[in-house]
């Protein structure tokens, strides 16, 4: 689980071009959108592609994204349960 968290943080930093941010700067329970990391709707689309491309998870229902993308913890929990890659 810890390894997956680290891997996911590195992927998010790379895909979203989060300059000057390291995996250590992203707290596991921190909000990814809004107040926390400050991601926006375009980033959400990038995360959907990331889930599909890297873990084989297709998010057909965008409403689910709101819960899944709350934090690193929620993303890792969902990936662990649904990954096909």
């Amino acid at each position: 689980m810890t390894a997956l968290k680290e891997e996911l943080k590195r992927q998010i930093i790379e895909v979203l071009h989060l300059e000057d941010i390291t995996p250590a700067d992203i707290q596991d329970e921190e909000a990814l959108f809004g107040e926390g990391l400050g991601l926006d709707s375009i980033d959400a689309l990038e995360l959907i592609v990331l889930m599909d491309k890297t873990y084989g998870i297709k998010l057909a229902d965008p409403k689910k994204g709101r819960d899944i993308f709350q934090s690193i913890d929620t993303m890792v929990a969902y990936i662990s349960e649904h990954r096909t890659k």
């Binding site: 895909v15 375009i42 689309l45 990038e46 592609v49 599909d52 491309k53």
Partner: peptide, 13 residues
């Protein structure tokens, strides 16, 4: 590279 899949929005926009 991705066989026309997994197209990310940022570079397109």
């Amino acid at each position: 590279e991705n066989d026309e899949q997994f197209l990310t929005p940022t570079s397109f926009i």
